[in-house]
Amino acid sequence: MQTIEIFENKRAANYNSFVEAWIPNYHYFMDNLPRLLKDTEHKNLLVVGCGTGAEIERFINTSQPWKITGVDPSPEMISQANQKFKNIENVQLIEGTINAVSSKDMFGAATLLLVLHFIETYESKLDLLKNIAKKLDANAPFIVLDITGSKQQIKENLKILKNLLPDNLDETDINNRLYRIENKLHAVSEDQLKKLIVEAGFETPTRFFQNSIYMGWITHKK
């Protein structure tokens, strides 16, 4: 059985500050998500691995009438998101995997940000992507952000990333995280990612964002 990465306690509480520090231009990427999906016909968004709701915040603050479903296996993450959106009627939050989403619900768009590199095997990544595809309308857009690259690419890009990190980070913490990214996570190459996405039932994705090891892709369900 595939192990699910669960963020709890201090790790959950610190997740937002971590990604903001470690992903250059993170806010630029996030702030432009609604613009990338503004032409979506059905404004019904599925956010897989929603965490504390960083993507959701961007969509509820637009003038477009988005209805949003966020799903995450971490109870602490969902708890924080529930506090954030408790008075927002068009946001539904589900604790669990995508299999916890009702089989009757279909979506006009989906996002999967910073999730795939926690999933160990190719087959488990493919299974998740296929389950997302099943929940989407035909031609629905799908955005992916993840650590991407061959082992050598990631190793070289981590040297660049280290120079882009904020000055106030602890050197020991930096080195520990760099080691974890290179040796403990399960990133795939660009070719493998494209293959996974196409095999799951999507069009060949277009890379529209890259900063060091992080790449953003957009595709559509076939």
Rank of each mutant, 00 (worst) to 15 (best):
D191L: 12
L164E: 11
I78L: 07
M1S: 09
T52W: 00
R177E: 15
Y15M: 12
E95T: 14
F208K: 08
E76W: 00
T206E: 14
K38D: 07
I132L: 02
N157Y: 12
S63K: 15
V198W: 06
M30G: 01
S189A: 10
G53I: 01
K10N: 10
K184N: 12
S150I: 12
D146M: 05
E203R: 02
P65W: 13
T206M: 10
N90Y: 08
E76N: 08
L145Y: 10
A133Q: 05
V71Y: 04
Q83F: 06
G96W: 09
K151L: 12
S103H: 11
T219M: 04
E55C: 00
S79R: 14
I132S: 04
N25G: 02
H27Y: 06
A133H: 03
T219A: 06
L33T: 03
I213T: 09
F118S: 10
P34H: 03
P205M: 08
G70E: 04
V144E: 02
I4V: 15
S150M: 11
Q153W: 09
V19E: 09
N16F: 02
E190L: 13
A200M: 06
R35G: 09
I78W: 01
H27F: 02
W217Y: 15
T206Q: 12
K195F: 07
T206S: 12
L164P: 00
C50Q: 02
V19A: 03
K86M: 12
T111S: 08
Q64S: 11
I6R: 00
G201A: 05
F202D: 07
F209H: 09
A54H: 00
Y122V: 03
R35D: 11
M77H: 01
V101E: 11
Q153I: 05
S63P: 00
V19H: 13
L193C: 06
A187K: 06
I23V: 15
T204I: 10
M106F: 07
P75Q: 14
E89G: 04
A140V: 01
M77P: 00
L116D: 10
T97L: 12
L185G: 01
E156D: 14
Q92D: 08
I88P: 00
T148E: 07
P141A: 05
Q210S: 13
V71I: 11
P65A: 10
A12P: 07
A54V: 01
E190T: 14
N32W: 05
L178V: 13
V91H: 05
D127E: 15
V71M: 05
Q92K: 14
S150F: 09
F142K: 12
L193K: 06
A109H: 03
V115I: 13
I4W: 08
T219D: 05
Y214F: 15
S124I: 01
N61M: 02
Q153S: 12
I6C: 00
K155R: 15
L126M: 13
Q92W: 00
D127Q: 14
F7R: 09
A187R: 06
E171I: 09
Q80W: 01
D167N: 13
P65I: 06
L113P: 01
N168S: 13
P65V: 07
T172K: 15
L165F: 12
L136K: 01
L114Y: 09
